[in-house]
Amino acid sequence: MVTDTPLVPDAAAPGEAPTPLEAELLRLAGSVPDPELPQLSLADLGVVRAAHQHPDGRVEIALTPTYTGCPAVETMAEDIRRVLAEHGHPDAAVHTVLSPPWTTDDITAEGRRKLAESGIAPPRPGGPAPGGGPVPLTLAVRCPNCGSTETELLSRFSSTACKALRRCVSCREPFDHFKELL
């Protein structure tokens, strides 16, 4: 298992701007496709937290899991190491951080678009609008096939830990919904 001891990213202290190299490392790590949803990159998913180069040249990436038991984390770490090795960083270390916990709000707008495009209803946004806007309504989950908002829950658990199984009442197609984790 890929674990860390401190559970806080010692890579890139808060408020410290990444160096040009670290920004490049972040870009490379973020470009890796998700092993289970290959249409999304790790950057779309919002799971690459930080990149850090130690004074002695060692390179470290902080990765956060979507779910604690997500079996894709080890593949993600391997893929990141491979991509970094291909770009001249053969000994990069990848460690996982849990704090602060990942939420579905970390999925980028681009990530949501790609999910919907591939037939998976994206998670609904959570939390109050920035700046204290109006209380958000509970939005319906839209069918990714026909666009109808008339959909029903079949099971809270589906093909992976992060999805629920729903069915469209209009077109009758079952579909996966990336369920909210906020």
Binding site: P65, Y67, T68, G69, C70, P71, L98, S155, F157, A161
Partner: peptide
């Protein structure tokens, strides 16, 4: 089938907690 999947998913979450 849905329960097969649900219980296995819950087990997977718990296994992840246990490993950490």
């Amino acid at each position: 089938l849905e329960e097969d999947v649900a219980l296995a998913n819950i087990a997977l979450d718990l296994l992840g907690q246990a490993r950490t």
